[in-house]
C-alpha cells in the first residue's frame, strides 16, 4: 500500500508540474486519511487531450472539503450499511459475502481499477455490478440487486473504497476492444432534442460554467458519488442517464450493454486518475 501511495503522489506531482493553465490548477491536493489521490494525471496516449482531471477539482471549496475527511463524507454512511450486507446471510445457500471472501472486503483491493473488464466465461465486458449480482445469484442463491439502486451502489462503494488512491487502469484492447469502440461511438454521437454528445460538454467545454454548473471532464473515478443534490450514492450509469435526459435524449438501460460499453470507455478516459469512491459531488 505504501508503495502505491508514493507512486500516486509522484504522478500527481508530475501532473501538477506540467502547469495546466486553468484556474482549477489552484485547487488543493486531495488527500484522505493520508492517502493521496491523483486528481490529475497525464492523459493516456489514445486520448485527444493532454491531461485527465477528476471531477473533484471542479467542485467548490466546500464540496471538496467534504471529501477530504471520511467523517464529513456522507457517502461513508452507505459504506457502513454495505458492510452489514457483506456479513448478512442471504439466499438459499445460507451464505453471506463473508462466507466465501474470508479476507474481508480488503480482498478486493485493486479490483475497482480494472473494471469494467472482459469476462471470458461470460463472453462479455462486466461491470462490478455484474460481478456482485453473479455472486448473489450463482454462489448464494439469492435475488440479484437492481443496478443503480441503493443497496448495489453501497456495495460498489465498499468494494471501490478498497482501491482508494490506486490509479484507474482499465484494458481497452484484446477482447474488450469491440465494447470499448462501441462506448467511444456513443460518447461522440450527438443525441436528443438538444443534439449534443458527451464530448461536446466534457471534452470541448470542461472548465467553463454552463449556467450554475462548472463543467468537468465527466470522469468516473469518483463513483459511486454521493450527490448533495439528491443526498444519496449515485451509480455511474445513473449519471449517464441523467446527462442524457438533460439533453432530452432517451437514456439506454442502466445495466444494459450500451451503458456498460460507455462505462468502459469513460473509465478509460480516466486511466491514471486515482479511485476516490465514494466521492462527494453537487
Amino acid at each position: 500500500m505504501k508503495k502505491i501511495t508514493t507512486l500516486c503522489a509522484a504522478i500527481s506531482a508530475l501532473a501538477l508540474s506540467t502547469g495546466f493553465a486553468i484556474a482549477e490548477a489552484d485547487a488543493p491536493v486531495l488527500s484522505i486519511d493520508g492517502v493521496v489521490i491523483a486528481t490529475r494525471a497525464p492523459a493516456p496516449e489514445y486520448l485527444d487531450i493532454d491531461e485527465v482531471i477528476s471531477g473533484w477539482v471542479f467542485r467548490t471549496v466546500e464540496t471538496q472539503a467534504l471529501q477530504m475527511d471520511d467523517f464529513d463524507n456522507p457517502g461513508m454512511i452507505f459504506v457502513d450499511q454495505a458492510l452489514d450486507d457483506w456479513n448478512e446471510v442471504n439466499g438459499s445457500e445460507g451464505k453471506s459475502c463473508a462466507s466465501c471472501h474470508t479476507g474481508g472486503p480488503e480482498e478486493f483491493a485493486g479490483l475497482r481499477t480494472v473494471l469494467p473488464r472482459w469476462n471470458e466465461d461470460a463472453g462479455a465486458v462486466w461491470t462490478m455490478e455484474d460481478y456482485i449480482n453473479n455472486s448473489l445469484v450463482e454462489h448464494m442463491g439469492a435475488e440479484p440487486w437492481k443496478v443503480g439502486k441503493a443497496q448495489m451502489n453501497a456495495m460498489v462503494a465498499l468494494i471501490s473504497l478498497q482501491s482508494r488512491g490506486m490509479p484507474m487502469n482499465v484494458a481497452i484492447d484484446g477482447p474488450a476492444a469491440e465494447t470499448w469502440a462501441l462506448g467511444e461511438e456513443i460518447y461522440f454521437t450527438r443525441v436528443g432534442q438538444l443534439d449534443m454528445a458527451c464530448a461536446n460538454c466534457h471534452i470541448d467545454n470542461y472548465g467553463v460554467m454552463i449556467r450554475a454548473d462548472h463543467l468537468s471532464q465527466g470522469q468516473s473515478n469518483g463513483f459511486p458519488a454521493y450527490r448533495l443534490k439528491n443526498a444519496k450514492l449515485n451509480g455511474i450509469q445513473s449519471r449517464f442517464s441523467g446527462c442524457m435526459k438533460n439533453i432530452r435524449a432517451t437514456p439506454y438501460a442502466v445495466g444494459g450493454p450500451e451503458f456498460t460499453a460507455l462505462e468502459l470507455y469513460v473509465a478509460s478516459r480516466g486511466n491514471g486518475l486515482s479511485v476516490e469512491g465514494p466521492s462527494v459531488r453537487n
Binding site: R190, V191, G192, Q193, L194, D195, R248, A249, T250
Partner: peptide, 24 residues
C-alpha cells in the same frame, strides 16, 4: 456548434418521446 437548433424539424437521435417531433 454545440448551440442547439431551436426551430428545426429533425428532432435529433433518440429524442425523449415527449420532445420528439417538436421544435425547442
Amino acid at each position: 456548434t454545440i448551440m442547439p437548433a431551436f426551430f428545426v424539424e429533425t428532432a435529433g437521435v433518440r429524442t425523449l418521446d415527449k420532445f420528439a417531433g417538436k421544435t425547442i
